[in-house]
């Protein structure tokens, strides 16, 4: 019974986060637009030669998604802080990790949709040739996004409630995400080039291990950072 209650709470939190985001009109559209804008700037920095763009595409895509995503993570706690809703949220019975999982679910959908838009724009802007192994590419996108969302949601629980939140979240997050970025960029690059040397598999294993390790670690640590 208790687990059913927890599932109910997770769903309630995820629904609440997504609905407030959807109705606020400021959230998703601007974050997605920002992602595309950053991508365009990368295009200016790295192009216009088609070959150079194709080489740089994985890096530019993931960095654009990262920079735009950082905004999403702070926002997911913003709504709680604006009207003192976090205090109320902490008053409800039950474990703290349901708050975390609910926000993870909402952020995953948010970041996932944003990634779809950014990747679509990227295919055009960076003249990416879609490889035969595109399902694997989608797998890499999913695994990379999970890594991003897990650590982003966790660190934002702290950064959003401290001074200088705009700088603290990237400062904490970006070094920790180096393995995810390296793995996702390298695997994407390999798959886009036909993966002659079967590199992608190793990177995918690293990504998966990273995701699992940090999902467990952050789940365990969340109650210590949200309550205090």
């Amino acid at each position: 019974m208790a687990f059913r209650d927890d599932v109910r709470r997770i769903r309630a939190i995820a629904w609440k986060d997504l609905t407030t985001e959807r109705r606020s009109k400021a959230g998703f559209n601007s974050v997605a637009a920002l992602g595309v804008t950053i991508l365009v700037l990368f295009g200016f920095a790295l192009g216009p030669d088609a070959q150079a763009l194709r080489e740089a595409a994985p890096g530019a895509l993931w960095l654009s998604a990262l920079f735009a995503g950082v905004l999403a993570f702070n926002r997911s706690y913003q709504v709680e802080l604006e009207s003192g809703a976090l205090d109320q949220l902490l008053q409800y019975p039950g474990s703290r990790w349901v708050i975390y999982v609910g926000k993870l679910a909402a952020n995953s959908i948010f970041v996932g949709l944003m990634l779809v838009i950014v990747v679509t724009a990227g295919i055009a802007l960076f003249q990416i040739r879609i490889p035969a192994a595109w399902p694997s590419l989608i797998g890499v996108l999913v695994l990379g996004a999970v890594g991003l969302v897990v650590l982003g949601t966790f660190y934002a629980a702290m950064a959003s409630r401290s001074r200088a939140r705009e700088v603290l979240l990237p400062l904490l997050l970006f070094p920790m995400l180096v393995p995810v970025l390296l793995a996702a960029m390298s695997a994407s690059k390999a798959l886009l080039n036909g993966d002659m040397m079967h590199e992608a598999g190793a990177w995918v294993k690293l990504l998966t291990a990273y995701d699992v390790i940090f999902l467990i670690a952050t789940l365990l640590a969340f109650e210590y950072v949200i309550e205090v």
Binding site: R23, V79, E82, G84, A85
Partner: peptide, 15 residues
Amino acid sequence: DLGFLAHTPGLYDDL
């Protein structure tokens, strides 16, 4: 056992 009514209502404006 508690019912807490804070000074700020803690509601979600867009709901």
